[in-house]
Design a protein around this nucleic acid. Structure first.
Length: 443
DNA sequence: ATTGTGGACTCAGAAACTTGGTG
DNA sequence: TCACCAAGTTTCTGAGTCCACAA
């Protein structure tokens, strides 16, 4: 115990000198500062490069970015030196190296999420998404009009924007053959969308991280007809939007609102939904009841964004265990009821299963025990339902990346829910910029 | 001009690790 | 009190988005 603590402190002391950077005179926390150790590349899903050897990174691979007058960090490996020292104040990275699996790509060391630099850009992201509120009505009107445009590019842009808006799909950049075969909106293939007459579309594709997206939605009839047209005379693996790519789409979106891109819709959709659900569903009640409302809203967002997780290996074992516990409590309950009956008639309690005799309790005491046990069973039942309900849903990703923290902070202030109930220590640090929000803030 | 590409940043789920509750 | 285990948190690193710039 003592040893462990000392060991931990020693480790922290060693790492301390890598943990901070002075940016414009302010000490800021650095994100991850370790290079990735060598090993075998796995990749997500069916990755063409699976099993490739990932080579060790040396100081000679690393480019460092520091101020003109800042001292060059000492190279930790004797006899080696850094690849390059740069002084670029237009970027935020502290250093980078080539990804050994794909040398065209870089790996970076950035400041931590809690740094003011990241906080500022996080805030800007949400401000942009909020700006979309002022434009969304016109944007929807415009693309609805273009559902039937004779200009096929315009029509494809309209339908793609509709799907991104309605379903929070990702933009969908082109991918190389040496990457996993996944798609987003612009790269959907004919086979990814099945029409279901008269006006339903069935989506089935692998998205980012090879996570399966399955969703059947009712769409406006002109959209249905446009999809029918885009699929006509094409093979299953042909591009659904053959006149479209993310570049064209974003260029178009920028004409509708300054800085608008496809991903803004995802942020907007997520944050809007949270704000909306909280406003509609929050009732008077205790903190626990309000937490249920919050988690419900969070779940809805996670489903919209298709944030999934694999079922934990021990899930079914855990459920079985909980069931057994409930059964045990039920048996206890049954016995308590018999004893209560007897106690009321002035009889002594029954013998317990191991043959020992029990303490003589007043009926009132037994009644109390029964109601306590009942409450316990109810709580376990609820916990089990929630556990089962959320076994494939990841709530964390949206909390971290899509939900404007000011919605949560303001809601907590209005409803007297401690923010610690919803944000853990690192989220509170990351969202420091949002903590002093006005309680009346709405997204 | 349009398209392609390098570059830099956000977003992603799983694994590893820590904490805390419980029998 | 102690061992266990599930929940919570942090780390890891892969996978997207999108911009700038140039051919």
């Amino acid at each position: 115990m003592q040893e462990k603590k000392a060991l931990k402190e020693e480790k922290l002391k060693q790492e301390e000198k890598y943990m901070w950077a002075i940016v414009d005179g302010v000490k800021e926390k650095v994100g991850n500062f370790r290079v990735e150790p060598p090993g075998l590349f796995r990749g997500r899903g069916e990755h063409p490069k699976m099993g490739k050897l990932k080579k060790r990174i040396h100081p000679r691979d690393i480019i460092i970015n520091i101020g003109e007058d800042a001292p060059v960090p000492e190279c930790p490996i004797p006899g080696e030196r850094w690849k390059e020292i740069r002084h670029d104040n237009t970027v935020t990275w502290l250093c980078y190296w080539s990804d050994p699996i794909n040398p065209k790509l870089f790996k970076y060391v950035f400041l931590a999420a809690s740094s003011s630099l990241k906080g500022q850009s996080d805030k800007e992201k949400y401000e942009k998404a909020r700006l979309l509120k002022d434009y969304i009505e016109n944007i929807r009107a415009a693309y609805t009009k273009d559902f039937t445009s004779k200009d096929i590019t315009k029509q494809q842009i309209a339908v793609a924007t509709y799907l991104i808006d309605k379903l929070a799909l990702r933009a969908g950049n082109e991918k190389d053959d040496d990457e996993a075969d996944t798609v987003g909106c612009c790269t959907l293939k004919v086979e990814n969308v099945t029409r279901e007459a008269p006006n339903k579309l069935q989506f089935n594709f692998l998205g980012k991280d090879s996570i399966k997206y399955e969703n059947t939605v009712e769409v406006e009839l002109p959209v249905y007809n446009a999809i029918l047209k885009f699929q006509k005379d094409k093979g299953p693996s042909d591009d659904l939007f053959d006149k479209l790519d993310t570049n064209k789409l974003n260029t178009h979106l920028k004409e509708l609102m300054p800085g608008l891109t496809a991903k803004v819709f995802r942020t907007y959709n997520a944050s809007f939904t949270l704000d909306d659900k909280l406003a509609k569903d929050t009732k008077d009640g205790d903190v626990a009841e309000k937490m249920v409302v919050y988690n419900h809203a969070n779940k809805e967002v996670a489903i919209i964004c298709n944030h999934q997780r694999s079922v934990s290996k021990s899930h079914s074992a855990q459920m079985t265990k909980l069931n057994e516990k409930i059964d045990e409590l039920q048996a206890v309950l049954k016995e308590l009821k018999v004893d209560l009956d007897r106690a009321r008639k002035g009889k002594p309690p029954t013998k317990s299963s191991d043959g020992k005799s029990k303490r003589n309790l007043a009926p009132e005491a037994l009644e109390k025990k029964i109601s306590q046990t009942n409450a316990k069973v109810e709580k376990m039942r609820r916990d089990m339902m929630t556990k089962e309900d959320l076994k494939t849903i990841a709530l964390g990703t949206s909390k971290l990346n899509y939900l404007d923290p000011r919605i949560t902070v303001a809601w907590c202030k209005r409803h007297e829910v401690p923010i610690e109930k919803i944000f853990n220590k690192s989220l509170i640090a990351k969202f420091a910029w949002a903590m002093d929000v006005d309680p009346d803030f709405r997204f």
